[in-house]
Design a binder for these strands. Structure first.
Lengths: 219, 219
DNA sequence: TTAATTAAATGTACGCGTATAATTTAATTA
DNA sequence: TAATTAAATTATACGCGTACATTTAATTAA
C-alpha cells in the first residue's frame, strides 16, 4: 500500500506489447526533477506556496503527471523532509558533547533539537502539520526506518545517561516519554508563538528531570 | 480586527436611508442556526465532512451568506469549541479529588485531561489541528479569556501541590511547562495512534514529577 | 408612487488536491 | 506498413474556502 510509486515494481517483465514502462533511471530522474522543483519552491516562495499545480508548472508538465511519480502531495513533501532532517541532525552531530557529564550531554542535545524546530517553524509545519492534505493519520514516522534510525542519537545518549539504572524496556518507555515532552514544548512554542514561554533550556531540563529521576513509587 | 461579525457594531445608528441592518436578535438567531447546523454536522457526519457549502445547505442559504455572520470557517468551528470544552471540563469537575493527597489530585486531573483528548481524537483535531483553513497562527487560545479561565482549574490544583514551595512566577512557569508536556503526550498519541505508547498514567506521572521535584541545580 | 440608498444575499470565479476519463505515445505483432 | 496494445500523459470535473462582483430587498426622501 505504501509508496506505490517509489520504485513501482516492473511487474516482473510483463508483456512485450504496448508502450514500455519507464526505466528505473528515467523514473528516478523525473522524481528528482520534481523533488528539486519542490525544494526550490519551498526555499524561495515558502511552505504555503507549494501546490501541485505550481510544482507542475516548474517541472513543465500537467499537474496529474506528478501522480505518476508520487502518490500524493504529501508524498512529494516527504522528499523535503530529508533536507530538513539532514540540517537538523547535521547540527546535532556537530555539538561538542564528549567532555561533558552524561545528563548534561542529553540536556545539550535535547535543547539543540528543540531549538532547531522553534527557530525554523516553517520546517516544523512542513514535517508535523502538513495541513490541507487529505489523509487521516500521520503514522508516516513509525514506518520510515531511515527516519527512525536518525533518532537513534537520542537513544544512544539516553542510554549513557541511564547507565543500566533501568531495564531496557523501562528505558525505552522513558525515552518515548521524553520525546513526547520535547514535542510538546516545540509544538506549543511554534503554534502559540506570541506567548511568553519560560526559558527553553529550563523547560527541556524539567522534561529530562521528569523522565530520569522518578522515585520508584509503586502502582 | 478580531471577530468583526460577532456583534458587528451598528456604526452608531448611521444613516436613515437604505435597508436597515439586521437587529441584534436577528443576527444572533441566524448565528445560532448556523452554529447548530455545524454542530449537527460534526456529530452526525464527523469533522472531515464539515464544509461551508454543506453547512449552508443545512441552514438553507448560499455559502457566501455564512460570511455575513462569521468571518471564516475557522470562526464557525470555534463555536464548537464551547461544546467540547463544556464536556471536557464538565468531566474534570466531576472528578473526586477532595480526599486525596495534593499531588495525587493533580495526577488524576491531568490524566483525565489527557484521556479526554486521546479518547476523542476528533475533538482534538477540531480544536488543535484545524487543517485546511487559511490562517497562519493559532494564537486564538491566548486571546480567548473565557477559555483561559477554564484552564484555571489546573492553576488551582497546581497551586495546592506547590504549596508556597516556589515563588509565584516560578510556579507559573512550571505550570506552563507541565501543560506543554501534557500537550506533547496528547498530540503524539492522537497523531501517531498506531505506536505502542507507554501507559498514559505513567507518562503523566513523569510530566508532573518533572516540573515539581526539580533539584535546585544552579544555572 | 417612485427614485435613491444601503445592507443582505447570492453568483461567479480562483486556486487548491485529486479521482476518473480521455488521449497520446512507443513499443510489438500481423 | 498498419493494427494492436499498454503505459504515460493530459483533460475534465468535483468539492473545498473564500475574494470579489452582482443582484435583491428594505428602508427613506422626493
Amino acid at each position: 500500500m505504501n509508496n506505490k510509486n517509489a520504485t513501482k515494481q516492473v511487474k516482473s517483465g510483463r508483456s512485450k506489447r504496448g508502450r514500455p514502462a519507464l526505466s528505473e533511471a528515467q523514473r528516478q530522474e523525473m522524481r528528482d526533477k520534481i523533488a528539486l522543483a519542490t525544494q526550490r519552491l519551498f526555499k524561495e516562495e515558502g511552505y504555503r506556496n507549494i501546490s501541485m499545480r505550481r510544482i507542475a508548472q516548474e517541472v513543465g508538465c500537467a499537474p496529474m503527471t506528478l501522480y505518476q511519480y508520487y502518490d500524493s502531495k504529501l508524498d512529494i513533501l516527504h522528499t523535503l523532509w530529508n533536507e530538513v532532517f539532514d540540517e537538523l541532525f547535521g547540527g546535532l552531530a556537530e555539538l561538542e558533547l564528549e567532555g561533558r557529564e552524561a545528563q548534561e550531554q542529553l540536556q545539550h542535545l535535547a535543547s539543540a533539537y528543540v531549538s532547531y524546530w522553534v527557530d525554523n517553524p516553517d520546517h516544523y509545519r512542513l514535517v508535523y502539520m502538513t495541513e490541507g492534505v487529505s489523509q487521516s493519520d500521520v503514522s508516516v514516522f513509525i514506518d520510515d526506518p531511515d527516519l527512525m534510525a536518525r533518532y537513534q542519537v537520542f537513544a544512544e545518549v539516553f542510554g549513557i545517561v541511564c547507565a543500566n539504572a533501568f531495564p531496557r524496556a523501562v528505558m525505552a518507555k522513558k525515552l518515548d516519554t521524553l520525546m513526547c515532552f520535547l514535542q510538546g514544548i516545540i509544538h506549543n512554542r511554534v503554534t502559540i508563538s506570541g506567548y511568553p514561554w519560560p526559558d527553553l533550556g529550563d523547560m527541556v531540563g524539567l522534561a529530562i528531570h521528569g523522565v530520569l529521576n522518578q522515585e520508584p513509587k509503586d502502582e
